[in-house]
Write a protein that binds this DNA or RNA. Structure first.
Length: 843
DNA sequence: GAGTTTGAAACT
DNA sequence: CAGTTTCAAACTC
């Protein structure tokens, strides 16, 4: 179709381009042959180029997405046809040569499917049929076409892809899917469609299993790679899309079984579900029943999901929520599934397995081995504290398996699918659960009977530990249990609520009243969270920041805290002396730091004053002079609140390590004062010497960089000078800022930068200069050419033309630049040489 | 379990 | 930004 056009288009600019003397010149240096570009153009449809497209972001990708996106939207029938053919066009393009006939057949089928319905509902039916029966694809096709309740609900690309999967023969599907996945950067919806490959799941049971397994894993990987991007988006539309795909998943084939199983497959846990096929089938059928209700809109599905799918939707809701919670991190479904794949240490009843996700999670919950993603500090606020405290002697009291079973999960899995599942499971299993004001929820609980197998799994322990007992256990467990809130007025939508603050839904054991922090009120929860985060982006960040071992040492050194963590903002205790759990530091099992503004700190995990008390007293004075509000002379009082925020905030969010590091250093920083002290008054104080010494000590344990820094940091006796950068530089720098030696700071920076080729010795030969320049430019050129060729291959015709001109111009610039740079190099080197010569001569 | 204390969060 | 109020957990009895 458009091939001739493309080649035509592509050819023109290329020839033009090749005529360019610049291009010729560059090509004379380039190992890449110009021919290649032409070839590439022709291989536009080839897997090779496609692969490239998937690697490099290019206009092609966006275009592609555009089209896919377009396809995804509801169409009138006529448009639908186009869309289908369009969407197929891509696959057709890719595989036209090899199996065009076959594909066209499948395309026809797919088109038929497009016409047929594409309603989620239908999909579920079809797939259920499929999953409940042995994979007979011809049969499935028939079902598709004949399904009586096809409706005209919106059609999504998901569907299309999915249908394609179904309607092809296994081998064809393999090819098709491969082609599609290879040649297209699949938008998330489409991705889901592929991911759906549930048929693939069935395929596994099929003869061609091996192929499919490979394919599945490949695809899944791809899908998973892209997923986070989608998930990380918090926009409504994105959510919606996501939700849609999820729904389609769910409907498509008892998603909980298929998709999960397929993911499990990736981890090689096929054994587990292989034996459960029958169970799955039954479960699917139950879903099928519930699917009758699935004509509801996406939103409805989210808020008032028909039970059968409740659990699933919750799981995914959990995923979505996690994405929202940790936007930067972008939780991928892969994670989710990986998590779910955590081998349960406690074997569950066979009937507990089918709902793999929940079950897996539950089981992992029961496991005594920490779940991988139950890492402290993953956004967990008080729960993180609780977690931390677990590590502490204080909380290391006896743990009964049961208690652990109950508590662990909630506190450490923020909005993870597990949470939803847990919650659900709690609800299901807990006989004491008070009727949820929201009927739907109760309904769901009951309706999830398809998942009821869950109940026994949990119920075993749950039933033996009723609410009160659990609370009691929790109370006696010293933070071991997950936090269960008792909110009465906040509706669990404020940070007062520990569950909410920790990023988890309230669970049954909570005694909250009018709780809105539940999956059913997801929208509200998310909105509230957004609102709170808008006020304070770190509101949901971990309150206790774990540090690396390296920092641990530092932290311990300074504060004698056994923990390698510090409270993000520090406490503000006035009366508890940081000896009660009113104190967040104490509660978190961490010592107070200089960030704290506590009075009379006696924190058992480390007093903020400690051996640095003296210097802080002086510091305090200085701060008072500065007008910095201080409490009663405690160290932390010296640290302006804003600074804490600044530091902690700059640190926390993304990378744990930097944040940790900074968090630990923060205290030192405070002690070192430079930062705070952009004011000279602090700088000149003698106590800084002490701090400096300390910082030097710290550096001994530091990495290379810090070693450099240490070397350059001023000795204790060094004269203090204010480091202008101290305050605003990133934490590490802040940490270094402790040694208020401006000189040192600069040295550090210089040292950390790869040194420029030494010019201090003899003047570099022109060969050296040339070679270095050559290398740079050749690399540059290769990259450019490569880019250009790729763009030629992928970009639309008009783009190519534009690109060629642009590129030619670009190359011209480069050429000029190259000349200029060469001159500069020569000039500089000679200048150095000349200087050196002069110096040597004169002195 | 009720009442008090406490400090964080939220509000003004 | 500081002061006040609200809130829920921690604590005490």
């Amino acid at each position: 179709m458009d091939t001739p056009e493309r080649s035509k288009v592509g050819g023109t600019p290329i020839s033009k381009f090749e005529d360019s003397p610049v291009f010729n010149f560059i090509n004379s240096l380039s190992p890449i042959q110009p021919v290649k570009s032409v070839h590439s153009i022709h291989t536009f449809h080839s897997p090779g180029s496609a692969a490239i497209s998937s690697v490099f972001s290019s206009p092609h990708v966006s275009f592609h997405k555009e089209s896919r996106f377009f396809i995804r939207h509801p169409f009138p029938d006529s448009v639908k046809q186009d869309a289908c053919s369009d969407g197929l066009d891509e696959s057709n393009i890719h595989s036209r040569v090899s199996n065009g006939a076959v594909l066209s057949a499948s395309i026809v089928l797919a088109q038929a499917n497009c016409d047929i319905t594409c309603s989620l509902n239908e999909a579920s039916v079809d797939l259920v049929d499929e999953s409940s029966t042995q994979p007979d694809f011809s049969q499935s096709v028939q079902v598709d076409n004949g399904s009586p309740n096809h409706n005209t609900s919106p059609f999504y690309g998901v569907k299309l892809d999915f249908k394609l999967d179904i309607s092809c023969t296994p081998s064809e599907r393999i090819k098709l899917v491969k082609d599609m996945t290879e040649n297209t950067q699949i938008p998330h919806t489409t991705k889901i469609g592929l991911e759906v490959q549930f048929p693939a799941d069935q395929m596994k049971e099929d003869a061609s299993g091996s192929d499919w397994e490979n394919l599945i894993s490949d695809n899944t990987d791809d899908l998973l790679i892209f997923e986070p991007a989608t998930g990380s988006e918090t926009s409504k539309s994105e959510e919606k899309d996501y939700g849609i795909s999820l729904n389609s998943q769910r409907n498509a084939s008892c998603l909980h079984n298929v998709s999960q199983d397929s993911f499990m497959d990736d981890d090689g846990e096929t054994d587990e579900h292989d034996g459960m096929s029958p169970m799955r089938s039954s479960a699917c059928q139950e879903h099928e029943n519930f699917d009758d209700l699935n004509l509801k809109t996406e939103a409805e599905l989210n808020n008032d999901v028909p039970l059968g799918c409740k659990v699933d939707s919750q799981q995914h809701r959990g995923v979505r929520r996690r994405c929202l919670d940790f936007e930067a991190a972008g939780v991928s479904k892969k994670n989710m599934h990986n998590n779910s794949n955590v081998p349960p240490s406690i074997s569950l009843p066979i009937n507990a397995k089918p709902n793999s996700d929940n079950r897996q999670l539950v089981s992992s919950k029961t496991s005594k081995t920490p779940v991988p993603y139950v890492l402290p500090g993953i956004g967990l606020h008080l729960n993180a504290l609780a977690r931390t405290s677990k590590d502490r002697p204080i909380s290391q009291k006896t743990k009964t398996p049961g208690r652990e079973f109950i508590s662990r999960p909630c506190s450490m899995r923020p909005f993870s699918p597990a949470i939803a599942g847990e919650k659900q499971s709690f609800k299901l299993s807990d006989p004491h659960q008070s009727p949820d004001p929201n009927g739907s929820e109760v309904h769901n609980s009951q309706a999830v009977h398809s998942d009821v197998s869950l109940i026994p799994a949990l119920g075993i322990e749950e039933s033996t530990s009723p609410k009160k007992k659990r609370r009691k256990t929790e109370n006696s467990g010293e933070n071991e249990g997950c936090r269960r809130c008792n909110c009465k007025k906040s509706k669990c939508l404020k940070l007062y609520c520990e569950c909410f603050a920790a990023g988890v839904y309230c669970v049954e054991p909570c005694s909250c009243q009018g709780c809105l922090n539940k999956p059913v009120h997801e929208e509200t929860v998310l909105a509230t969270r957004k609102q709170i985060e808008s006020r304070n982006p770190l509101a949901f960040a971990p309150k206790v920041i774990r540090t690396s071992e390296h920092d641990q040492e530092m932290g311990e050194e300074s504060n004698k805290t056994p923990a390698s963590a510090r409270h993000k903002r520090g406490c503000n205790c006035k009366k508890s002396n940081c000896l009660k759990k009113y104190c967040e530091c104490y509660q978190g099992g961490v010592g107070c730091s200089f960030s704290c503004r506590c009075e009379g700190c006696k924190n058992a995990f480390g007093r903020k004053d400690g051996f640095e008390e003296i210097e802080y007293e002086e510091e305090l004075d200085a701060c008072e002079k500065e007008g910095v509000k201080s409490d009663d002379g405690k160290a932390n009082a010296n640290v302006p609140k804003l600074e804490h925020h600044h530091l902690s905030e700059s640190i926390l969010p993304v990378t744990p390590f930097p944040s940790c590091r900074s968090s630990v250093k923060l205290p030192f920083l405070s002690s070192g004062k430079p930062p705070r002290s952009s004011t000279l008054s602090l700088m000149n104080r003698s106590e800084n010497q002490q701090a400096e010494c300390k910082s030097d000590q710290i550096f001994h344990d530091d990495d290379d960089t810090s070693e450099d820094l240490r070397v350059n940091s001023s000795p204790c006796t060094a004269v203090k000078t204010a480091s202008p950068n101290g305050k605003r530089v990133s934490l590490p720098l802040n940490g270094f800022g402790m040694s208020p030696n401006l000189k040192g700071g600069r040295k550090l920076i210089l040292k950390s930068i790869p040194s420029f080729p030494s010019l201090s010795t003899d003047a570099p030969s022109s060969t050296q200069i040339n070679s270095s320049v050559e290398v740079i430019f050749i690399v540059f050129k290769v990259v450019l050419i490569f880019q250009y060729e790729i763009s030629i291959c992928l970009w639309p015709s008009y783009f190519v033309e534009f690109a060629s001109d642009y590129f030619r111009m670009y190359l011209s610039y480069i050429f000029i630049w190259k000349m200029v740079m060469r001159k500069i190099f020569i000039f500089v080197s000679h200048l150095f040489y000349f200087n050196k010569f002069i110096l040597n001569t004169i002195f």
